[in-house]
Write a protein that binds this DNA or RNA. Structure first.
Lengths: 211, 211
DNA sequence: GCTTTACAGTAACATTGGTTACAGAGTGTT
DNA sequence: AACACTCTGTAACCAATGTTACTGTAAAGC
């Protein structure tokens, strides 16, 4: 099963020799939605390769206020983790499974070795960094240049995409946390979206109609 | 002179063979403060290695509003540029010399070659990505979690560090641009800082007393 | 069914930051 | 000196967002 999952998600990226190495040293892991994969300040044990599901990556400030940075999906890995491997520094971010998620953990020592051995691995690592930098840029754009109503709209669109369905199972409070806003503000804006016919609001979940 | 500059800034990072290659294929470049090195949407011609001076990296939104992301200094390179080399995508950012700056430009084809050939180059590239990601994180923190007065304070501290002196040669309008705020707001906050004895304000420049 | 709890709706108010408008001061030009 | 131009200071006002407080109601536990 791990063979199948791996080939399905990474077969087109990695050469066969690398796939085989991954199968030998990687450990398959399955975590439920909400599972905390990484905490701020903790050290990194391995490099995750996402096979299915989604992981949300969060930043926290000194007061405990949170902010959603981006999601990782099938075929992604955590660049923050990678650099931690090299320098053995602590994590700057928190990672929580957004949906039920399957992943393969690679021992950190392999990072160095594979980087010189496999061109496909190098490309994968570079591409990964590139993607993360770009996602950070877009998050930054959103915060710096958009008002809260636009940020909320983007959030809902992204959440719908990640969760593959029209139902967003979150309370207003939870959304407020991830956008670093307050519950009242989010309720207010959601109400406006409902009046515009874009969503319909229910207790504990939101139905997306047309964003 | 290029030999000296290069060894001075990168001698401890790169093995001799790589230093020699850089000397052969790199072109030395000297640009004055204010020189635009990279524009949004343009394609990348080479990888810059900073030898002295500083470069500011800016983001712009659709309305032309700017935001300062971070500075590059001696020993740094532009990660955004690197990924552009691989994928041949357009630049997402603008880069402008903050001070008079010396740098060495590397042809983009070398990126791929050196990455497999030199361990020190690989490490340099990874470290560079790591640093940029962290700086993006801190910029994001600043925007998401701090009020404008704190952001201005951080800005002044950083500017003082980069320019190596207590005089910040900018108008309030210029500062407002880089923080994505408005001139009146910056003037207001600077006045408060002056009343607290942290700076003294003059036409076209600010004297830092104690931040 | 009754009680408790968490969630959502809403109003009133506070704060931050952005906008407009205008005055005055420094600098350079003629 | 007279003028134009740019930069800064300041006041009045506005918009967006955050805060506090209170209400109603659905769900969960008893």
């Amino acid at each position: 099963m791990m063979v199948q999952e791996l080939k399905n998600s990474y077969g087109h990226l990695f050469e066969d020799a690398l796939i085989n190495e991954i199968l030998q040293v990687g450990t398959f892991k399955e975590v439920p939605a909400g599972f905390k994969l990484m905490e701020i300040g903790s050290y990194v044990k391995g490099i995750p390769l996402l096979v299915s599901g989604a992981i949300k990556v969060l930043r926290e400030d000194k007061n405990g206020d949170e902010l959603l940075l981006y999601y990782l999906e099938k075929g992604d890995t955590c660049s923050m983790t990678m650099t931690c491997c090299l320098g053995l520094t602590k994590s700057e971010i928190r990672a929580i499974a957004e949906t039920d998620t399957k992943l393969i953990m690679i021992p950190i020592q392999k990072m160095e070795i594979w980087t010189s051995k496999y061109k496909s691995w190098r490309n994968f690592v570079f591409e990964s960094y590139h993607n993360r930098l770009n996602e950070m840029l877009h998050t930054l754009d959103s915060i710096a240049f958009n008002n809260m109503d636009e940020r909320l709209l983007n959030y809902l669109k992204e959440k719908k995409r990640i969760n593959k369905g029209n139902t967003i199972r979150n309370t207003h409070q939870e959304i407020a946390f991830e956008l670093h806003s307050s519950r009242v503000v989010i309720s207010r804006l959601l109400k406006k979206l409902e009046q515009l016919g874009k969503v319909s609001l229910h207790r504990n979940h939101i139905e997306v109609i047309d964003l």
